[in-house]
């Protein structure tokens, strides 16, 4: 599963990386990331998740082939 992160999350993770998992939910992926970088938990808890340029709900069923974008709160302008 490919993960891409942005902004403050890049202080904790590479911009793009892969995790080998059969996790199918956002919560499961988040748990993997917290396990990798426990100090990222506060930022991760504020993030939205997207697949194929669309925000996804908590019950979205992730596929192994998905690229998951982890989107911190917007701060443009």
């Amino acid at each position: 599963m490919k993960i891409e992160v942005f902004a403050a999350l890049k202080d904790y993770f590479d911009g793009e990386f892969e995790v080998t998992t059969n996790a199918s939910s956002i919560e499961a992926v988040k748990a993997i990331l917290v396990n990798l970088q426990p100090s990222a938990i506060d930022v991760l808890n504020t993030c939205r998740f997207a697949v194929n340029d669309e925000f996804i709900d908590n019950d979205f069923q992730l596929q192994e082939s998905d690229t998951i974008s982890i989107i911190p709160p917007s701060s443009g302008g």
Partner: peptide, 24 residues
């Protein structure tokens, strides 16, 4: 645009420190 679109600012300060987001 400020609240919904995935765009992020990072402020770079004179003391060399940086701060993501906020300022809204």
């Amino acid at each position: 645009i400020k609240h919904e679109v995935p765009i992020w600012k990072c402020e770079i300060f004179a003391d060399g420190k940086k701060l993501w987001g906020g300022n809204c």
